[in-house]
Design a protein around this nucleic acid. Sequence first.
DNA 1: CTGAAAGCGCTTACAG
DNA 2: CTGAAAGCGCTTACAG
Lengths: 355, 355
Amino acid sequence: MEKKCTLKDLAKILNLAVSTVSKAINNSPEISQLTKIKVQNTAQLYNYSPNKSAQNLKTKKTKTIGVIVPDVLSHFFAMAIHGIETEANSKGYKIIICLSNESREKESKSINTLINGSIDGLIISLSKETQITEDYGHFEEALKYNFPIVLFDRTFEKIICDKISINDQLAAKEATEYLLQTGCQNIIFLSTISGTSVGEKRRMGYLDGLKNTGIQSSILNIKNYNSFEKLLMSQLQNFKVDGIVTADELSAISTMKYALKNSFKIPEDISVIGFTNGVLAENYIPSLTVVDQQAKKQGTIAARTLIKRLNKKKPIKPVHRTLKTSIIQRQSTFALTAKITEIDNPSGKQLPSKV
Amino acid sequence: MEKKCTLKDLAKILNLAVSTVSKAINNSPEISQLTKIKVQNTAQLYNYSPNKSAQNLKTKKTKTIGVIVPDVLSHFFAMAIHGIETEANSKGYKIIICLSNESREKESKSINTLINGSIDGLIISLSKETQITEDYGHFEEALKYNFPIVLFDRTFEKIICDKISINDQLAAKEATEYLLQTGCQNIIFLSTISGTSVGEKRRMGYLDGLKNTGIQSSILNIKNYNSFEKLLMSQLQNFKVDGIVTADELSAISTMKYALKNSFKIPEDISVIGFTNGVLAENYIPSLTVVDQQAKKQGTIAARTLIKRLNKKKPIKPVHRTLKTSIIQRQSTFALTAKITEIDNPSGKQLPSKV
DNA sequence: CTGAAAGCGCTTACAG
DNA sequence: CTGAAAGCGCTTACAG
């Protein structure tokens, strides 16, 4: 690879000092208009652009944000990344992405490689393992140096930093109440993410929703998709169930898939509501009623919050933002005409009402 | 944010020269065992880790790979990113991700901000706009300096660099032949990505597949999902169609969604085959028969190829790798007992055979 | 085996 | 308005 043109090269060509050239390129008011034009023209001619490593070293800024998420395959995180990238880019930042694959070890390694001058700040959604073990030791060093961190979605109260999330507990309570209002009498909670902060909060929200209804609660935790059908069916065949609140998107879809396969009708026999408004939820038959988690917005706000902090001279108090959720009513549940806006019912079919 | 410990700090504490400390930390054979141990212990004690910007500036390496993809929401690119990240990480590289959002402008900007010392090499899948306009000017500078680039999936022959892809034309031909072999007589090709290299190749493959069969070809290009149902239905209702080769995953799912909604049976009335083995294809009812594009493997090989090049002292000739595809037979088509392995038919139902 | 020096490519306080 | 100098935090050829 050939050598790129440097400030020194330009200085020699123009017969100017390196410092003058630097200032001219950065449009410093110290420099005369004439010189600026001359310098900028030659810079363009030689396709000059400042070396980032040198700039970073000198200015102690990288204009880069680190992002660590559990995975990139689930719609929620992909969408959040999209939001982060868009916002960051519009403010002149690049993003480095690390996937923890739900592993604390990998998360820890990523933090360590990133905070040594590769990035200005970090946006993280915690790995399942980190949340289950509650071992946050790998954050200590970053926190000691006051390294700017924003947690989103899967957060933890003991880590003192900016946090962006939805009110998972309230959202699950509302989802449960929604099923109740459409006439469901036997509602269970199904989760493949028990142990994560959001999984636990949603479970509690479900319990909140059933409080004072006299309805027996029932929780089905599934660790592994291999046993999904077996566990779900043993529940559906041995107990009366007419409504299922699921903790994420894929588990909702799998619930529908196996229920339909085993001749249950949705929503006639069983209503299903899920979390995250993804492409699966939207395109499935029946389309899935979901709690919109505002994935993109969480990403956008996370990036915005971080960049705001980076631009402050003095440390500011941690910011906690809780985004509002809404229920998107589709075909996997009965209709609720009041309150909830019906969007995106591509079939145009009238949603059935429970009598 | 507090100051991090530097080599200079350590040197002062240990009463050694900066150069000695540097070598000790990097385990240079020049340094005595005793000194190494002393230095490494204090380094650990003070939580020392070398400043990346300084290292990058000095060594002219960043151990970072840039990745530019059209989006992160489609399963193919998310999976490719997963492959790239895993491979890169295992070799000690980080990845910076930029999303072109199918825009040439954004792609161009990303290239320019990345190649100025932020990364060692670049992995790109071209944006739709770049491919349609065939304007590759934004690659000129990088190519002039021999900047290491790997193109994957959406490639272009005029850009001289490493390339990883599948044989899209052959894969589409095989998909078409597959439908023929299961008994389809009126097969159309449906695409929402016409104009991209892969879209065109798949279209040609479809035509190849029909050659010498006497079957009339018919191509349905859809630019916008808003008119998807209307265009598809006008085709299905006015012409005899019993097989559809679609150019990607979401368009296949949408095809099934709207066909089912309009009372067509799949595969009895219409067989559908798609590209990309994503979570939609796997979980839909009926599950979708697809050409497995080897998303993760394309990513892995792209990263591996790039890193191999980065480790070479001398420039080597561009590498072109074409990965083998396979058809994953599911429920959206009739069964073909020979040749093709049936995997992932979660329902366990026997696939119907066309008589 | 240890250290002094140069230099990667920038920016910026200071001098003239 | 222009320039000489110092320095960001490293690495590495060279000297001793």
